[in-house]
């Protein structure tokens, strides 16, 4: 079972908790009421099935928490203002922009990033299709594209090319691999292996 599938059920079963990558004994409640800041506070983030407790100021975005505090740099910072989609991750299974999410608001939610998509060494079908269809060049928007693409198939709105194009328009690819991105999505759709649960 891939990491993202683990994390879908993780917070229902008592997640393993790591503090700065060290195991600690107990889980915090899912979303405790709290007032805090502006100084940093321990925030429990469940990412790709593992819960990490990290000290974060409330102003820290989910994107910066992932990139600067958890060393999960697959999610990219292209604009930091919700206009490019490079930071697309899933929160509770829905694709969202990590740059406009404060990390502290994600406590008790399941975050999935590109690093959690492959099942170990085995790539997700969408990752394979992106390689086969050459659906990227510089690769900087690719994590966001793939997180969007897999979510799109899950959402079930990829029947036509026009639907795919519209639904992928929140992910800018400046290399303009758009036709190949659509081809990759079609390929996975037609093989019937798309969606979050494809490799579970």
């Amino acid at each position: 079972m891939p990491a993202w599938a683990v994390q879908l059920i993780a917070h229902h079963v008592r997640p393993k908790i790591m503090h700065n990558d060290q195991f600690v004994a107990t889980a915090p409640p899912d979303r405790p009421p709290l007032t805090s800041g502006p100084s940093s506070l321990p925030v429990a983030l469940t990412v790709n099935g593992s819960t990490h407790v990290v000290d974060l100021e409330p102003r820290v975005s989910l994107l910066d928490a992932l990139r600067e505090h958890l060393d999960l740099t697959g999610s990219k910072k292209g604009c930091d203002q919700g206009t490019c989609g490079a930071c697309t991750v899933w929160v509770d299974g829905r694709r969202v922009l990590a740059c406009l999410s404060l990390a502290v608001t994600c406590e008790g939610r399941s975050v999935t990033t590109i690093e959690g998509l492959a099942a170990g060494e085995e790539l997700h079908p969408m990752q394979r299709a992106f390689i086969e269809c050459d659906a990227f060049q510089c690769g900087y928007c690719t994590a966001g594209q793939i997180m969007s693409a897999v979510a799109l198939l899950e959402e079930g709105n990829a029947t036509t090319d026009a639907e795919i194009a519209e639904s992928m328009s929140g992910n800018i690819c400046r290399c303009a691999a758009y036709p190949n991105i659509r081809a990759a999505i079609r390929e996975v759709r037609d093989a019937g292996e798309g969606g979050h649960r494809a490799t579970a």
Partner: peptide, 11 residues
């Protein structure tokens, strides 16, 4: 970004 305090409201 300016420093922010944060409160999670339950009601």
């Amino acid at each position: 970004m300016r420093p922010l305090s944060y409160r999670r409201a339950a009601e």
